[in-house]
């Protein structure tokens, strides 16, 4: 049932993207200083990774997330890709020719969810937990969607840009004597 919706969503996206730029694995691709970067949407996330896996990409190197709320007006996205607050970034490698690709999916603030890659690459389990813990993007279908680095009862996600940098005040004078 959801498959059809995904298909429709994908074709609708492609209709917007169709006239612009090159694509690979059905999603827009750009060259970022010599590195191949694909731009799937959360809806096409799982399909794209499945296609990569079928094409010989044998290892998920990294999954992380970025909060772009303090960096409006990004210019490194291909035409047809709408910038959103969050971005999930995943890297994959193929060992027979050493080709690497990076996936960047725009994830809206209103619904920060992407499908989990656990069933394709179980090695993403800890990485997705980390991305959830620190940035607050949820991974649907993850077997253990809990915090990994922060304490279980922590509130908020520290790598979001609206979380202030913690500071310890440094006292330069009038500091109490050591004893």
């Amino acid at each position: 049932m959801s498959d059809e919706q995904v298909e429709e969503g994908a074709t609708a996206d492609e209709a917007v993207e169709a006239p612009t730029g090159p694509t690979a694995y059905g999603v827009p691709v750009v060259d970022a200083s010599g590195q191949e970067v694909l731009h799937p949407s959360p809806d096409t996330w799982l399909e794209t990774v499945t296609a990569l896996k079928d094409d010989g990409f044998c290892m998920a190197i990294d999954v992380t997330a970025v909060d772009y709320s303090a960096h409006p007006g990004r210019t490194d996205l291909p035409d047809g890709v709408q910038p959103e607050r969050f971005e999930v970034v995943a890297s994959f490698i193929r060992h027979d020719d050493g080709r690497r690709v990076r996936l960047r999916a725009q994830v809206p603030e209103s619904d920060p969810v992407v499908p989990s890659l656990f069933d394709l690459f179980p090695g993403t389990e800890a990485m997705e937990r980390e991305a959830f813990d620190l940035v607050g993007v949820r991974f649907e279908g993850h077997p253990d969607p809990t915090r990994i680095l922060m304490p279980e009862d922590w509130n908020g996600h520290p790598l979001r840009r609206d979380v202030a940098m913690g500071r310890i005040p440094v006292q330069f004078k009038d500091a109490p004597a050591p004893r």
Binding site: A32, Q35, V37, I61, D62, H71, T75, D76, S91
Partner: peptide, 22 residues
């Protein structure tokens, strides 16, 4: 502005740095 990933072989395996610049 841009983003990149650089990987090296550390004694424990692939050590990568993903860097985003505004």
């Amino acid at each position: 502005e841009g983003e990149t990933y650089a990987a090296v072989e550390s004694p424990r395996g692939e050590l990568g740095c993903y860097l985003v610049s505004d």
